[in-house]
Design a protein around this nucleic acid. Structure first.
Length: 587
RNA sequence: CGGAAUGUCGCCUAGUGGCUAUGGCGCUUGCUUUGGGAGCAAGAUAUCGGAGGUUCGAGUCCUCUCAUUCCGACCA
């Protein structure tokens, strides 16, 4: 490609919206342009990189016997009503009516489509297992797009869907994806860790997320360096301390103006772990069949030294959403905010008790009476409720596996794998006849990789103060060839020779000063740079530099330039191949 | 969806009620230059996001609206 003909231009100054380095350079180098909030165009350079990423993904999916298909972006709402997600997903899914007035949606993922295809194509165990995948546009009307391609509304995603006879089959396809994703990310050059995850709206059981660790990330991840335990904070387990003692008799005491745990501890001269804190939430339950909504008050009882992890609570409740309750809603159940507890309200609210409370004794809790608390409250004696882990993991907490310290980090989710089980096949009647003649629901899995997000994280990982420096596997071209000579013919010949040798070249043939050409080459950051100038030409050579190390210069003889560059390309590619991560899931 | 901020040429930016709206980058033309974002000269490009209002006078003040960004809620 000749730079004189290239559609995009580089920007000397960063547009003000660029809030992180990777985004700034993708804009300045001319990879992407914004159209609206969370809506981007890929320019030629960005599209080339994206195509390379997709190539890596295709190669891997094909190696898992995946078959590429393409499902529609616009879906009739009917299939989404079948699974209930038409009702349970809020404004994030965009809906509209077609000219006949039919309900339509823009697909934000394709479980419904895939299951719909599955039920028409798969009728016998003989057709299983299957794996289909697509690389396709998704639309999610996210309330808060940010950080360039990191969090967008319209994006390209590779999503695959597995179909199996049974759990064992699913386990196998799941494991294959688990290992394959490590290969994909390492081929692209992105360091990732895998974490145990919440399955969120997918509604499955087992799931993992692939995280690129970075301060720009929005997900919070707990890791244990000692044993390797990693989990999304939303589901992270940790080892709690329990304070077991002889149960004493409950006693009411006056605690005027003590509305917080800290006030209470100061007044009574006790530790926070000797209190039981009540957190009041409103949970929304949506009926999958009718779409009817119901709100219920939830009292979450947790020990005073811990905080509620709302995500864990929502999962225990199997609620569609939860939010903090308003004061009037709390009072309506006869509970006094500031002096509230689960005691005496089992008929008015759902009570969830963290095991920290269930396994401790003689905790101080609210008396549900203005200005009073209760000493020595004990679970099961004074109140009951469902016991679960609803506590939020924090930095420095103890790992539940090995008792070492957990560390908190930020990450960007670039991929995920879910075991869906029969959630979708049962809801959508995707059944097959097994060898025993019985009709059984297909066991499914779904697996996603955000293509644009992967480009964004790569740009974040591979940059310096001058610009991008993408690995050769995902860079838009392998070689940037700068001719600084007045004589155009020599440059043209080298360009033509490089192209003929199958090397991907961006040729800077513009009438620009050397400084401009160097600055743009730094910005776009192609892995190998060839510079042809008068000085080196007289010596019969050209200069070669690697973008990853601009301080070092090699002089390549013009006679053997093409072959030498070809070797250099091969060398860089081999480095990536040699560093492919092989990691298996142990279940 | 709550809170905040910002909209001036393709990008960055000046502007604090008063003449024909700054400057830089980029763009066009010519000459010079050609190893790190060149120099000289001449040009073009802005209904100051939109609508309404206050005022003798509005880019500037007010109201509404649209858009974008940030913080939070949310998020595969």
């Amino acid at each position: 490609m000749r730079m004189s003909k290239m559609f995009s231009q580089t920007l000397r100054e960063a547009p003000s919206a660029a809030d992180c380095k990777g985004y700034e350079f993708l804009l300045r180098a001319g990879f992407i342009r914004q159209m609206g909030a969370g809506i981007f165009s890929l320019l030629p350079l960005g599209y080339k990189s994206t195509a390379k990423i997709e190539g890596i993904i295709r190669e891997e999916m094909d190696s898992l016997d995946g078959q590429e298909i393409l499902m529609p972006l616009v879906n009739p709402a009917d299939i989404w009503k079948e699974t209930g997600r038409y009702y349970s997903i809020d404004k994030e899914m965009s809906r509209f009516n077609d000219r006949r007035g039919s309900d339509m949606v823009l697909a934000m993922t394709h479980e419904e489509d895939a299951t719909s295809l599955g039920r028409t194509e798969i009728n016998s165990y003989k057709k299983l297992p299957q794996l289909i995948y697509q690389i396709q546009t998704k639309w999610r009307d996210d309330a808060r797009p940010r950080a360039g391609l990191i969090r967008v509304r319209e994006f390209t995603m590779k999503d695959s869907y597995s179909f199996d006879r049974d759990q064992a089959g699913l386990d196998e396809q799941y494991k294959k994806h688990y290992a394959s994703y490590f290969r994909i990310f390492s081929k692209a050059g992105l360091p990732v860790i895998v974490v145990g995850a919440d399955s969120g709206m997918m509604g499955g059981k087992v799931s993992h997320e692939y995280m690129y660790l970075s301060p720009i990330g929005e997900d919070t991840i707990m890791t244990c360096e000692h044993c390797g335990y990693t989990a999304n904070k939303q589901v992270a387990k940790f080892q709690k301390k329990y304070y077991k003692e002889e149960a004493k008799v409950i006693e009411k005491i006056a605690t005027p103006d003590c509305k917080t745990i800290v006030d209470l501890c100061n007044l009574l001269n006790i530790e926070t772990h000797q209190c039981a804190k009540a957190v009041f939430m409103m949970a929304t339950f949506i009926n999958d069949k009718s779409g009817e909504e119901e709100e219920k008050l939830v009292v979450a009882q947790i020990r005073g030294d811990l905080d509620i992890e709302e995500n864990k609570l929502q999962n225990i409740l199997k609620a569609n959403s939860i939010r903090p309750a308003h004061e009037e809603e709390i009072r309506a159940a006869g509970i006094v905010p500031g002096f509230g507890s689960a005691i005496g309200c089992s008929d008015k609210a759902i009570i969830i008790v963290d095991d920290s409370v269930a396994k401790s004794n003689n905790l101080v809790a609210g008396a549900n009476e203005e200005g009073y608390h209760l000493l020595n409250t004990n679970f099961k004696v004074d109140y009951t409720g469902k016991v679960a882990d609803i506590a939020s993991a924090k930095n420095g907490y103890t790992c539940s596996v090995c008792n070492h310290e957990l560390k908190v980090s930020k990450g960007v989710e670039v991929g995920n794998i879910f075991q869906l089980g029969t959630r979708y096949s049962e809801a959508m009647n995707c059944y097959f006849t097994d060898i025993d003649g019985k009709s059984k629901p297909v066991v499914m899995g779904s697996y996603g990789i955000g293509v644009g997000r992967l480009l964004a994280t790569l740009a974040e990982e591979y940059n310096d103060e001058r610009g991008l420096s993408l690995p050769i596997s995902v860079a838009p071209y392998q070689v940037h060839f700068l001719s600084l000579m007045k004589d155009k013919e020599i440059g043209e010949k080298i360009y033509t020779d490089l192209m003929a040798a199958g090397i991907e070249v961006l040729y800077d043939d513009r009438k620009e000063s050397a400084g401009v050409k160097f600055a743009d080459a730094d910005l776009i950051g192609l892995p190998i740079r060839i510079t042809l100038g008068n000085k080196s030409y007289i010596e019969g050579s050209a200069e070669v530099k690697l973008r990853s190390n601009l301080d070092e210069t090699f002089n390549y003889s013009l006679d053997t330039l093409v072959d030498d560059v070809k070797k250099e390309v091969k060398k860089l590619q081999d480095e990536i191949t040699n560093n492919i991560v092989h990691k298996e899931l142990e279940i």
